[in-house]
Write a protein that binds this DNA or RNA. Structure first.
Lengths: 141, 141
DNA sequence: TATTGTTATACTCTATAACTATA
DNA sequence: TATAGTTATAGAGTATAACAATA
């Protein structure tokens, strides 16, 4: 029976490589990984900055600059809902959708290249399990 | 058919939580996650600093301070092999083994708590697939 | 000439706390 | 009094390049 390995140690090289892939894919459109992550979240549904910070496990003060940048590029809009004038609802623009799709295509291509030696069945199984576990953690948070 | 999700997005929350677990477990023994990672690697086999940097995907200049710290705590030793007096062979001490085991126990306990809602079969399958994929990446590097 | 480990430096990222305007 | 967003600042983490000793 082999010794139990730390879970992080068996994920570290993979997530570092994936992080690099996302950084580069986002940088090709003048974005950071975090800005791309915001874009991806608000494409699914508009959200205010506090909700985004919670969901991303990110701090709200850092989000300010990221959303400034996204807004400056015309990829999202800040809208103040009349029901609570303290908050901003972040909404994606059509240009934002295009940019996000372009970045995602780069990411998926690079993922395919990175995992070219992993059999598709292994890979799909892994992705499914990872999604289940992570979604479970999000539901708890 | 649901849209393909970025692999990083389904791993991110998990790896961030695991990173926090390792940071805290290592900090309880005055170490960083990186220093713990070095300790774990040299327990398996002594290695020089360049090899460690490559294996950890870390830079060799940062390793200098980390190994200084580990050496200062008496957890590893630098030994100059007569065959190549430029390099240091980093060897773990018995105190280093004890510290590493103690930190790992904390990590495994915290992992169990984090993943308490994940069925053991799911978890084992996930860990096995992750290890296979990561080991494959290491073999390529 | 190349490599190992080291040092110095600048830069980016991140955490903390305080502030404003609304509620 | 509490919350959403913002601003300012200090600190940690990281990348780059240059250096000495050895090969």
């Amino acid at each position: 029976m082999p010794r139990r390995r730390d879970l992080l140690s068996v994920l570290f090289a993979l997530t570092r490589a994936l992080r690099r892939i996302e950084d580069e894919a986002a940088a090709a459109d003048q974005l950071t990984m975090w800005q791309y992550a915001v874009l991806a979240l608000v494409e699914d549904a508009p959200a205010n900055q506090t909700a985004l910070a919670t969901r991303l496990d990110y701090s709200k003060n850092r989000l300010v600059h990221d959303i400034d940048h996204l807004e400056h590029l015309g990829l999202v809009r800040r809208e103040v809902p009349p029901t609570d004038r303290r908050s901003n609802t972040i909404t994606i623009t059509s240009r934002g959708r295009q940019t996000r799709a372009r970045i995602q295509r780069r990411i998926h291509d690079a993922e395919d290249e990175l995992l070219r030696d992993v059999p598709p069945s292994t890979r799909n199984q892994f992705a499914q399990l990872a999604a289940d576990i992570t979604d479970g953690l999000h539901r708890r948070a």
